[in-house]
């Protein structure tokens, strides 16, 4: 790390490089977020206006049991989807990392392939597979098993979230596995460890940073997911993003929707801080 550039000696190029993304970030992320924060302290006036009155009533309302319960449910659904992604994604990442270079490229393309199609279209495609007259249920029917309720329930929401987020788990883990020192694996096997033991005691700890990144990249968007519970969920699979959406549209209560959104952002920040803390506690490899 000796070839680091000292920006004090080159302020012009530095500003030119940092300026546009910083301006973009401020204009399209920081400012809207500040508007949402301000609105969460507002009161509805008449049908269409909001006065920023500095009230805490909206934030107090987000802590009512019904909304905390919805948050809890969102955590449970996103957590279950994240764990399933890890269970499915880790072996997949192992295969990718230890494949021949040619096969690895093909596997990576296969993992990225779903991104070539819009999320909405992928979700509808999944729905046609899962519905009563869909592919799975018609196959089951020929085997004499009645149609299973695969769609419009919490199971469908978790399945949809796993389907969407799996690449976000596989890619960081595969990247960290690729950088792993292969001689450590060979040494472990030479010294008599079983294959499973090597995976659990050597590879898994060394891939921990990748796993952590994968967990965050999966959990955070899953927690705020809106489309999947909306389209694939049943009568009681509303997640917090659906409730926020309804405040902005049907309920026409933007201040309360903003307060719920602020709570969601805070919980996400808390998860990030927790991860940072855990990483600091861990002895670096």
């Amino acid at each position: 790390m000796d070839n680091r550039v000292d920006w004090h000696r080159a302020p012009g190029p530095f500003a030119a490089i940092l300026g546009p993304p910083l301006a973009w970030f401020l204009l399209f992320f920081a400012v809207p977020l500040a508007v949402v924060l301000a609105m969460s302290f507002g009161t509805n006036v008449g049908v269409a206006d909001i006065a920023i009155s500095g009230t805490f009533a909206n934030h107090a309302r987000t802590l009512e049991p019904v909304y905390l319960g919805i948050f809890l449910k969102s955590f449970a659904i996103a957590g279950a989807a994240t764990l399933l992604c890890l269970v499915l994604g880790f072996p997949l990442a192992l295969v990718v990392a230890f494949a021949t270079p040619r096969a690895r490229t093909l596997l990576l393309v296969a993992i990225m392939l779903p991104f070539w199609t819009n999320l909405l279209i992928r979700t509808y495609a999944l729905m046609t597979v899962l519905r009563d007259g869909g592919l799975v249920n018609s196959a089951l029917e020929t085997l004499g098993v009645g149609p299973l309720p695969l769609l419009y329930n919490n199971f469908a929401v978790i399945l949809g979230l796993v389907y969407i987020h799996l690449p976000f788990m596989v890619l960081p883990i595969a990247a960290s596995l690729e950088r792993l020192d292969r001689s450590l694996v060979e040494a472990s096997l030479d010294l008599g460890a079983s294959h499973l033991g090597t995976v659990l005691r050597i590879i898994l700890p060394l891939a921990a940073p990748g796993i952590m990144a994968g967990l965050l990249l999966t959990f955070i968007p899953a927690l705020g997911s809106y489309l999947t519970p909306d389209l694939m969920g049943g009568p009681d699979s509303q997640m917090i993003a659906n409730v926020i959406e309804r405040q902005f549209k049907r309920a026409n209560d933007w201040p309360f929707g903003a307060a719920l959104a602020v709570l969601l952002v805070n919980l996400t920040l808390f998860a990030l801080a927790l991860q940072g803390l855990l990483r600091r506690l861990e002895p670096s490899p």
Binding site: V66, G69, I70, K73, P235, D236, Q238, V243, R246, Q247, R250, A251, N252, D253
Partner: peptide
Amino acid sequence: RLFEELITRMRA
């Protein structure tokens, strides 16, 4: 807003 809250509660 009352209607909306009642239905949100019912669904939760």
